[in-house]
């Protein structure tokens, strides 16, 4: 359950204040599938960063699964990110020197989970995403679609309640894009809240709920 109230985010560009988000309120129930759309600079990425606790609002409150996360300190927010939120990026953000296996295992390793358990969970994830024969490959040996599947496997390995995807198909060809979208939707069907930022109208239309943002405000929510 995501609950945003009167969120403001102001950036200083030179000596000019830019309202990336002004008075944004929204609620997302568990298991929702939301597409945040809008032109460049409309604040959709800023909103996603606030939801993902990568950025702090200048004003307003944010509650995630009943926790007032906007009041937590940096370390506590990091804990929330680790356990509740999975990120999928446009440019995949895989660590180039690590294999697909190690990239997926990264969140488990960072939270101190033992080698044996990592082995079991990552092997299962590789199989689930059709990557079993790619476990030992580094990102530069994988296709775009495979890279994004590795990234999604990594985002879900900690069993988060929310997946935040920022243009997840923006860097993929059409068929890989559809494939990735289907994987994300499958995860959503299993109960994970999926929030996706995109300016691809075809992708946006697949979501059950679409939020249109213009100039830092929610223009449209259906």
């Amino acid at each position: 359950m995501i609950h945003l109230q009167h969120i403001e985010r102001i950036f200083l560009v030179g000596d000019e204040e830019v309202h990336a988000l002004s008075d944004v309120s929204m609620t997302a129930s568990d298991g929702e599938y939301i597409a945040i759309m809008g032109p460049s600079g409309s604040g959709k990425s800023s909103l996603l960063n606030i939801i993902g606790l990568l950025d702090r609002p200048d004003n307003g409150s944010y509650e995630l699964d009943g926790i007032k996360v906007s009041e937590l300190d940096e370390q506590q927010q990091a804990e929330i990110r680790r356990h509740k939120i999975g990120f999928v990026f446009q440019f995949f953000h895989l660590v180039p020197r690590l294999t697909a296996f190690d990239n997926i295992a990264l969140p488990l390793m960072l939270s101190g989970i033992k080698q044996e358990e990592r082995q079991v969970r990552v092997t299962a994830a590789l199989a689930a995403f059709g990557l079993s024969n790619r476990a030992g490959h580094r990102p530069d040996q994988l296709s775009g679609g495979q890279r994004q599947r590795v990234a999604i496997a990594r985002a879900t390995i900690m069993q988060p309640s929310v997946i935040l995807a920022d243009e997840p198909t923006g860097n993929l060809d059409r068929s890989s894009g559809i494939e990735v979208a289907e994987i994300l939707e499958e995860l959503n069907r299993q109960g994970i809240t999926l929030i996706m930022v995109t300016h691809d109208p075809d992708l946006g239309r697949r979501a059950r709920r679409q939020i249109l943002m213009v100039d830092g405000r929610i223009e449209h929510d259906k």
Binding site: G52, L54, E74, Q75, A78, E79, I80, R81, R82, H83, F87, F89, F91, H93, V95, L106, P107, L110, S111, R154
Partner: peptide, 16 residues
């Protein structure tokens, strides 16, 4: 830098 951003997104704190 990208890796640092990723690690932060994966829940790594500044101290780590």
């Amino acid at each position: 830098t990208g890796e640092i951003g990723l690690l932060r997104a994966l829940g790594v704190g500044r101290n780590q």
